[in-house]
Design a protein around this nucleic acid. Structure first.
Lengths: 276, 276
DNA sequence: TCAATTTGTTCCATTATATGGAACTTAATT
DNA sequence: AATTAAGTTCCATATAATGGAACAAATTGA
């Protein structure tokens, strides 16, 4: 299941990139493909595994991997298997700790969690994925690393659909066209048309639902959040089990979610100036 | 303070690398320098800021940054400032979630936390830094992203000194020679000689203390942990405020910490086979 | 045990990519 | 408006990546 998600997500990402531009990143681009391969794998990969999937000549691949290992982006264990390097953790810890969007949103997420008692998420759109920047659940405001940073599809999450509703029509159309719709549950959108219709509705009303579209038994209500410079286009959501969160209750929570979203954007205006 | 630490750490890292090898990583190496620059900065950097620090010609730097942005490793906001890219989060979330060493250690860390009531850390040596892989504190086993992944100096942390005690003399000497000793408190080791003496002692007794060497008022007791293939050389520790953790108490805890370390290594032998 | 095979590593002439100086455009400052 | 600084683009040159092949090491099978 997790594996399936990762694969699907990987495909989508590469689709969108190959579509969007001529992919002219040269050396770095090739190395990133390898990094993707290794970090998306369920287990450390041997040289031959990577060779089969990367489509590079042996000599070339060997040197590329060596460089990645030298830089600490990959690690080679005693059995000759490649795993993600711990230097990635260091990079991520820094980028997370200092992310302005997250810092500003933090107190408002906590407040929303207090008010509802359910789990609150903050995510932003990157390509066709939602990357979760923060999560507040249970008793105290606490971060579970395993969830933060994870990329999820935009077309079947509340935060994702809320984010899409902020895009101008042309960008939205391009993005939708590149999506490879995977049906996670019976209610997952299976085509751009049905998704587009809902996104228009979301744009009108200002909030979005996830009606068990990504995971059976899980619902959420989300509201869009954006920075004025469009660096961050995302959303916040309240998520929980369907047995506890009736659609009626979610409709009631649409207002507080939108209010919290508004306060986050207000906070950004104050902290970052009117431009952003 | 944080900035100082980051800088020092950065310097140390590049020292060790230039010492260890001829730094032959070509294109990737140059790009990583830029990534380091941006992720270590306290705030997003403008082009000119990076230009001043990177020592690259304008045209070159511009293209390098563009490539990093295209790959999602950096992000360029509306004000022309470069910040770490969110793709780093995705990479890190994956490498963390699947890290075998951490997965195996997890229950033993929780157990140690239960037994002592204090915060428990797991860290591994990478270059001259300790990278924290996990942390268990307070009531339930919970991850605070802001601490996990952070790199700390090896010469003034319990986990760091425990890890160093596992190195063969020649490697240890090389590593110590490259350290730029920064005095965080009055008790921080200020030279390789004094540190080496303590490390020998630690190697004999099998556990290490941090006597408020990294942060005033914070003590810890640590024990070394390693995988047999030497992929992971690190340690686990119990950390807490000096007023609560007398040196006497820490000495008592040396035994349970060592036992937990032993169980972790036992777990690795079982899960990963005798080789590692 | 030795051959056969698979897997991993090194080498080097060729090719592709990055480089960096300068010209150019745009924005900020006086 | 003039001046300076900041950011972007261009292209001949220098550098680094490529990939085929030869080599070495580890595994498998007879």
């Amino acid at each position: 299941m997790l594996t399936l998600l990762s694969r699907a997500d990987e495909m989508m990402t590469s689709n969108s990139e190959s579509m969007a531009q001529t992919r002219e990143t040269g050396t770095l681009g090739k190395l990133m493909v390898l990094l993707d391969l290794v970090t998306h794998a369920e287990a450390p990969l041997r040289f031959t595994d990577i060779l089969a999937r990367a489509g590079q000549p042996r000599g070339t691949l060997h040197r590329q991997l060596s460089h990645l290992v030298e830089e600490g982006l990959l690690e080679l264990d005693g059995d000759g298997r490649y795993a993600p390097g711990l230097r990635l953790l260091d990079f991520a810890a820094r980028s997370w700790a200092r992310n302005e969007f997250r810092l500003i949103a933090e107190p408002h997420l906590a407040e929303l969690q207090q008010a509802t008692g359910e789990t609150v998420h903050l995510g932003v759109l990157r390509g066709q994925s939602i990357i979760y920047l923060d999560k507040v659940d249970g008793r105290q405001p606490v971060r579970m690393y395993s969830q933060i940073g994870n990329a999820s599809p935009c077309y079947c999450t509340g935060v994702g659909k809320a984010a899409l509703s902020l895009l101008p029509p042309d960008l939205l159309a391009d993005l939708l066209a590149g999506i490879n719709f995977t049906s996670f549950t019976a209610s997952t959108h299976a085509s751009g048309e049905s998704l587009l219709a809902e996104i228009r509705e979301i744009a009108d009303q200002g909030y979005a639902f996830d009606r068990e579209e990504h995971e059976a038994g899980i619902r959420c209500v989300a509201a869009p959040v954006w920075s004025q410079d469009r660096t961050f286009i995302g959303g916040i959501s309240i998520t929980g089990p369907a047995y506890r969160l009736s659609m009626e209750l979610l409709r009631q929570w649409a207002v507080p979610v939108q209010l919290a979203a508004g306060r986050i954007m207000e906070g950004m205006r104050i902290r970052l100036g009117p431009r952003r």
